[in-house]
Every structure is written in structure tokens, then in C-alpha cells.
């Protein structure tokens, strides 16, 4: 169950708590500061590598592309959109993402509560992914004060994502 929860967390971790928001890119946004789309994709890619390194987590990803599950491209594309919006770039989440190898119409990225409702994520798994992604941000050179800006949004997702409360 932890494994299943894992991917769900990945796909939510960089999203905002509110299900819908819209931000305009402006000079001085974190999106611009950290290299725009290239910077966002680097963070998404490193997060996925950190997660796949773990054999107990990687098993979930094997089903990516199979019927009823995300494709790798769709997953990364939606993560790109979430990150972009979170960091003040152009876009709206949930919404349609055209990043990566998205088809012409783009990928539809659903809200976090719906996306994670059937994944049985517990608090322990959520904490584990906050750690992984927090350290990816720091390692990628995101300033401490900017992590502070992003953190409340990430942590605020707990109530939307955690559906199991076996552990505190």
C-alpha cells in the first residue's frame, strides 16, 4: 500500500492546496529565478530519479502506461504544470498541460483530491516524500527563503492526499 501511495504523493507534492488557482508569470517569480521550464523539469526529473532508486517504490511505476494508469509522459507533464504554477509561472492547475511530449490537446491534469482518492496514502508515506522533495529542492540550489515560500503549500496538501491514518 505504501508503494501505491508513493506515486500518488509524487504527483501531488508540488501542487497548491487550493484546487484551482491561476498565477501570471512575472519577472521576479521563483519560476524565472530558477531557470523557467528547464529548471522545473530538472526538479521534476530529479524527484522521479530519487523515488525510482527505491526498489519498494519503483514497483508502482512499472504499471505506468498500462490501462487505467498514467503514462510516464503524462505524469511528468502534469508535475511540470504543477511546479510551474507553484513557482509563479504561467498556467492553471488543475488544467491542461502541454509540457513534455503532450498530444496537441494536451494532458488533462485532475485535482489532487480526486487523483489520490484511491491510493491509500498514509501520513508516513507523505512525510517521506516531503523529505525527498524538500531535499531535491535544496540540492537543486533553491534558496532557503524560497523553500519557506513553497513549503506551506506542499505541506498543506496533506489533508487532500492522505487517506489512511494508521500512523500519526
Amino acid at each position: 500500500m505504501f508503494k501505491v501511495g508513493v506515486l500518488s504523493i509524487i504527483s501531488m507534492i508540488f501542487v497548491v492546496r487550493a484546487f484551482s488557482y491561476d498565477l501570471d508569470a512575472s519577472s521576479g517569480s521563483l519560476y524565472d529565478k530558477y531557470g523557467g521550464q528547464a529548471g522545473v523539469q530538472k526538479i521534476v526529473d530529479e524527484s522521479v530519479v530519487a523515488l525510482l532508486a527505491d526498489p519498494t517504490v519503483a514497483s508502482y511505476y512499472v504499471v505506468i502506461g498500462q490501462s487505467g494508469h498514467d503514462t510516464a509522459d503524462r505524469l511528468k507533464s502534469c508535475l511540470d504544470l504543477q511546479f510551474t504554477v507553484l513557482m509563479g509561472g504561467l498556467g492553471k492547475y488543475p488544467g491542461v498541460s502541454h509540457y513534455r511530449n503532450a498530444p496537441k490537446r494536451g494532458y488533462t491534469c485532475e485535482n489532487m483530491k480526486v487523483a489520490h482518492s484511491d491510493l491509500g496514502i498514509n501520513n508516513q508515506a507523505f512525510d517521506q516524500f516531503v523529505m525527498i522533495l524538500g531535499s531535491v529542492l535544496q540540492r537543486a540550489g533553491v534558496d532557503r527563503k524560497d523553500v519557506d515560500i513553497l513549503a506551506p503549500t506542499l505541506l498543506g496538501l496533506r489533508s487532500d492526499v492522505v487517506t489512511k491514518t494508521i500512523l500519526p
Binding site: V4, P55, S59, Y60, V62, V63, Q66, G68, H69
Partner: peptide, 11 residues
């Protein structure tokens, strides 16, 4: 869910 059915070789 197929996730629980993936083989170790696939992973």
C-alpha cells in the same frame, strides 16, 4: 491493482 502484480524483473 497491476502495481502489486509487477515482477521484480520488470521493476
Amino acid at each position: 491493482c497491476p502495481a502489486s502484480l509487477a515482477t521484480s524483473a520488470q521493476v
